[in-house]
Computed example of a mutant assay.
Amino acid sequence: MTDAGFMGPPWQMDWTLKAQAARDALPEHVRKALDAARAELVTAADPYFRDIETDAGLPASMHVEPARSSDPKGSRVLYFDNGHGWLRYVFVQRTEDPQIVVEEVFWQ
Rank of each mutant, 00 (worst) to 15 (best):
T95N: 07
T16P: 10
K18P: 05
D55G: 10
A44G: 06
F80I: 08
M1L: 12
F91Y: 14
G85F: 00
S70C: 02
Q108T: 12
M13I: 15
F6A: 11
K32Q: 15
Q12L: 13
W15A: 00
W15K: 09
L58S: 05
D14F: 13
D55A: 10
P98V: 08
L17D: 11
A19Y: 01
D35R: 08
A36C: 01
S75Y: 00
R76A: 04
S69I: 04
T95K: 12
W107R: 08
T43A: 13
S69H: 10
E53D: 12
G5D: 10
D46W: 06
L17V: 09
H29R: 11
L34H: 02
Y79G: 00
A36G: 09
P27F: 04
Y48N: 09
I100C: 07
I100T: 09
W15I: 05
L87R: 10
Q12K: 14
F6W: 12
D3Y: 14
K32I: 13
E104N: 12
G5H: 09
R76M: 07
V105C: 11
H29P: 15
G85I: 00
K73D: 14
K18M: 07
G57I: 06
D81F: 01
E65K: 10
Q12T: 08
R50F: 10
K32H: 13
H84L: 14
Y48C: 00
Y89E: 02
Q99C: 14
A25L: 06
A36H: 11
A45W: 01
R23E: 06
G57C: 06
R94Q: 14
P27M: 06
Q93Y: 15
Q99R: 15
G5C: 02
W86S: 11
E96T: 14
R23W: 03
Q99W: 14
